[in-house]
Design a protein around this nucleic acid. Structure first.
Lengths: 196, 196
DNA sequence: TGTACATCAGTGAACGCGCGTTCACTGATGTAC
DNA sequence: TGTACATCAGTGAACGCGCGTTCACTGATGTAC
């Protein structure tokens, strides 16, 4: 049964949104086309009217997840030069650890991206580059510099690697070693904030 | 056709070894029982005489990969207090990035571990804990301290998170953004060595 | 504005495929005498 | 030490299942007059 063009566009958007949640929750290989379209309130049959393939959807969902995650860094309330600190504080929380479906795509996807389709790898790299740039700009502002220098970018990359690695490791130990998982969040919060 | 008990033990070991390589190369879900046993020079039929399940093998292969990786940290030639620095230098190399099948299990596995069987999560957490302890001991030695204090452990966790996150991100960008991938290795080498 | 019909978004059954796992069988090993 | 036979490590076909993808069909939408 045909639906209006407007409704069809909404359905497409609902699929991308559901995919963003489910891929972040279960990984690219852990969420199927049928599960995703069902979560969007549809059946899987019409899927290929909207997307060329599952990889095509995954690349778009990856890009959208990055955009949403980056927005949370760019719309912070702290003054410039204090935003990275606040972001680190919000990033290394039990809530973020336990709700990967709403969180940063990097800790969930990074390990699998090398084995995914090229369009997914491209969307991921573009997202990472945006994060580095935004972090570096705030680190430059903290120094009173107008534009980020190489040292800002390098420090931004250390901060990002620490956040992504730390969150991935905190999640990996959450069930089998909960005390270690908490320690990841607490220790890194202190160590990384001391870097900025 | 039956083989000797000695040969059977060798076959079992060959399966674990092949699994360690293939899981690190293709991920837990990306390497199958048939592929692994074939790489060990066997067929898949006899697999369940050696292991209760694929997850059972994965847990053992994970533990063995950690042991081998940890050995590379514990048998370094630098004097105590200088070993972390050397390890960082070896870790953040193009060779390590391009040969994940021979490298550290953490960047490959961390993202998928939360969705794996509990025995795999346990093997992973035990391995991570060993790494933190060994890194912290060397950081303590650098200070001239006999035993690692809390600050050594926290710093060790930052170093480990940076290495693991950095390597995962360097691999994720290797094909789609090779310049960014190189930058991950170079920038983090400098930044992390400055931490110890 | 109203009518007739072409369009096409979405449905649900079906496809081929690869996966983890099972099982009847084979034949060399290990053991009892 | 030699022989007869029970044991069991490994083989390869087969299983059920879930996956991504395809397709004939449905019926409301959008359009031509």
């Amino acid at each position: 049964m045909r639906v209006s063009r407007e409704k069809a566009a909404e359905n497409r958007e609902a699929i991308v949104r559901a995919a963003g949640k489910l891929f972040r929750q279960n990984g690219f290989d852990g969420a199927g086309v049928a599960e995703i379209t069902r979560a969007a309130g549809l059946t899987h049959g019409g899927f290929y009217g909207h997307f060329a393939s599952k990889d095509d959807l995954a690349a778009e969902a990856c890009a959208q997840s990055f955009a949403g995650s980056l927005r949370r860094l760019e719309t912070r309330t702290e003054p410039p030069g204090r935003q990275v600190e606040g972001y680190v504080e919000d990033y290394l929380t039990a809530y973020h650890r336990d709700r990967s479906d709403r969180g940063c795509p990097m800790p969930v996807f990074a390990g699998d991206v090398p084995r995914q389709a090229m369009e997914i790898q491209q969307a991921f790299s573009i997202g990472v580059e945006s994060f580095i740039g935004t972090l570096a700009r705030d680190l430059a502002a903290r120094r009173g510099a107008a534009k980020p220098a190489k040292r800002d970018r390098q420090r931004a990359m250390l901060v990002l690697a620490g956040l992504v690695g730390g969150m991935a490791l905190a999640r990996a130990s959450a069930k089998a070693a909960p005390a270690l998982s908490e320690e990841w969040l607490e220790s890194l919060k202190g160590e990384i904030k001391a870097l900025v």
